[in-house]
Design a protein around this nucleic acid. Structure first.
Lengths: 184, 184
DNA sequence: GTCTATAACCGGATAGAC
DNA sequence: GTCTATCCGGTTATAGAC
């Protein structure tokens, strides 16, 4: 098994980068630092990532892709609990990335991905609040989406499934949606 | 006369910087290049200017200051020909800087001077178009200010005084102001 | 005190050898 | 895939000439 673990180093670079960025901020971390932590040299990074930007993008991209895949099957009038449940799951799965983005939203602009994120938020709003929502409705949906993401990050102690249910209950209340078959 | 020419080197740096920036753009010029052209080393630049930004600012600042000094005496209802004449003069005096700014307006943002410039343009508009001007009036004044600046730069061949009169005549027409005592 | 230079460090990025 | 070496740009420390 010599060449099977091709991406191993790249992965280690990614995770080192993630840790350091989480600790110090994107602009405060140099490629040298990242390389050192991985135990390689700067140029080695450049073998795996053409630039600093590309490295950061490679951190965020899988999350973006995953969200888009999860959102794809849903359409207008989607069941809120289902849609937001799926969104919770994907957010939770990538909670390290979610946390990074929440700490420094500027990252998205940096790697030219802000538009994508804005788009799926808008899509979710239109699916959940209808085609011509009032401001109040939009606000509630945006709060729901944002708050849901926050919880996956801010409450890392909570086990996934419990957190999931608690968040979805709260979000449905926020959206004035009666919970489904909850026994008293 | 030992210490009289204190700022000489700083001036040479400024003028070298100005030339190179005019030729290649602000962001395309390195301090090394500037230093070389002056015949000193990079660190020598740093003695005179704390940073790249400060160097650029020192290029622009005298112009800003001069404009503000010139504008100060004027108030609401100022005579347009007089005000614009004074503004022409100051623009013409600093036409090298004016040209640089026109080529790359971003420079102002870079050195945090965009606000200042915006302000005196607004001031001139309110002085010349009154407190509650129509859009049409504002447009004419802004065109006058901008066009006047352009002429000092675009027509470097023309001698100052002739250019001045020609520009002022044109500007007064633009502002629908009858020229003062012009014989037929 | 004014001015300048040498040398060095940091960060990003690339070439080329192993 | 990884390194050594190198370049560039910005910046600073230090030392020293005038």
């Amino acid at each position: 098994m010599p060449r099977a673990r091709t991406t191993e180093t790249a992965d280690r670079i990614r995770s080192a980068a993630l840790e350091l960025i989480a600790a110090k901020g994107v602009h405060q971390v140099s490629l040298r630092e990242i390389a050192e932590r991985v135990g390689v040299t700067k140029p080695a990074l450049y073998y795996h990532f053409a630039s600093r930007e590309e490295l950061v993008r490679s951190l965020v991209q899988p999350f973006i892709d995953d969200v888009e895949a999860v959102l794809a099957p849903f359409g207008p009038g989607a069941d809120a609990r289902q849609l937001l449940g799926a969104y919770f799951d994907v957010t939770y799965r990538h909670r390290d990335i979610t946390a990074m983005i929440m700490r420094e939203p500027g990252i998205l602009a940096l790697v030219d991905l802000a538009a994508a994120v804005g788009q799926w938020r808008t899509r979710m709003v239109s699916m959940l609040a209808g085609p011509d929502p009032s401001l109040a409705e939009v606000v509630r949906v945006q709060m729901a989406i944002g708050g849901l993401g926050d919880c996956t990050v801010v409450l890392p102690g909570a086990a996934g499934p419990e957190l999931r249910e608690a968040v979805l209950d709260a979000v449905c209340d926020l959206l004035l949606i009666p919970g489904p078959a909850r026994e008293p």
